[in-house]
């Protein structure tokens, strides 16, 4: 009952604690959580953070859900009350072949970026382990710089690098004898080259987080375990697959999940690169499509339905990883 006495000093309502509960709880847990004090304390601590998150995210989410069942266009912005239309917005969205094109495009773009990012990221983390001090620090600093680079600054540099007439990329390619790249516009020329540049900018920014987190996790792998595996005759690849990967798996899964979410909702890169392309319809992904429909076109009802579908898509794609993660952590 030590913890009871200790918290009694600050407890505002010690009598509200169920008698006999605190001590066993404290003994069962590896880290004693004091429960004898005010039962209200944790809730009071949570008022501000929960309130703010509800205001910034919860309320808009509910509103958006409601709006997705309403006719909410330009007329409603000028004060006409929105009309309930049931699932009509969803029917419009799902019945539009262009929506499916954009969705398929987004999923493909996301899968490509997430997989390439994870692959390069983990490979670089393993590489970091093999290096001498100076090259290791050089690579780490380069990655950290790319990570911290404001996306807009990065995007302007990439746009400048692939600028048709004076850009470095076209100059290098034409100097190498590829005359067809003289004055070639990577962004406006074809959706394929547009998405290639977009994918490079996304991967360039995302790899550092994967590499540095995986590297930090790798350093937590006990040397003794690796040596034991080596003595037991496990080859390099086996050690990696059967010893190292299971240990860093929680971190890798978390990163993969984050990458999927980030790459599926990608907006900034596409929006900025579109300004240099001018072929929005062929290059829209879900994020820019929602923007175009809502903020651009003023059709908030349809845009809300679109955004809700996008949210559901993210949840479906990440649900399994979330469950694994929750089971692994001591939540």
């Amino acid at each position: 009952m030590v913890s009871d006495q200790l918290s009694a000093g600050v407890s505002s309502a010690p009598a509200t604690a169920p008698p006999g509960v605190p001590a066993p709880v404290a003994r069962r847990r590896p880290r004693p959580r004091r429960r004898g004090g005010s039962l209200a304390a944790p809730y009071l601590l949570l008022v501000l953070p929960v309130g703010l998150v509800c205001l910034a995210l919860g309320y808009p989410m509910v509103r958006q859900f409601v709006m997705s069942f309403q006719e909410f266009g330009l007329a409603q912005q000028f004060g006409r009350p929105p009309e309930w239309v049931g699932f009509q917005n969803y029917a419009t969205v799902l019945g539009d072949p262009y929506f499916w094109v954009v969705t398929a495009r987004s999923v493909a773009f996301c899968a490509f970026c997430a997989l390439v990012t994870m692959g390069i990221g983990i490979a670089l983390a393993l590489l970091l382990q093999k290096l001498s001090t100076v090259p290791r620090i050089l690579l780490q600093v380069a990655l950290v710089l790319a990570w911290a680079m404001p996306p807009l600054a990065a995007l302007t540099v990439y746009t400048w690098l692939v600028e048709p007439r004076y850009g470095l990329v076209n100059w290098l390619l034409t100097s190498a004898g590829l005359e067809s790249f003289r004055g070639y516009s990577w962004l406006a020329g074809s959706p394929w080259t547009f998405f290639l540049i977009a994918a490079i900018t996304v991967i360039w920014t995302s790899v550092p987080l994967v590499t540095l987190s995986t590297y930090a996790a790798l350093n937590q792998v006990d040397e003794a375990i690796l040596e034991a595996a080596e003595l037991d005759g496990a080859a390099g690849w086996q050690r990696l697959r059967q010893v190292v990967l299971p240990i860093i798996q929680p971190v890798v899964l978390l990163l993969l999940m984050l990458e999927i979410i980030w790459d599926l909702k990608v907006f900034t890169q596409i929006k900025v690169l579109q300004a240099g392309a001018g072929n929005n319809r062929e290059t829209n992904l879900l994020g820019t499509y929602v923007y175009e429909t809502g903020i651009g076109g003023g059709d908030y009802g349809i845009a809300s339905a679109l955004a809700t579908v996008m949210l559901v898509l993210v949840l479906v794609l990440t649900w399994r990883y979330m469950r694994t993660l929750m089971k692994q952590g001591d939540l």
Binding site: R33, Q64, K265, G294, Y300, M310, V314, L315, M322
Partner: peptide
Amino acid sequence: FTFFGRRGALVAVLVVQMIPAEALFISQYR
């Protein structure tokens, strides 16, 4: 602290991070 709803709160912290801002900006704008 241990309290009723702690597990739910932890899950919420995780789940909220999964909500893409890009799926909410229409309604945040409104």
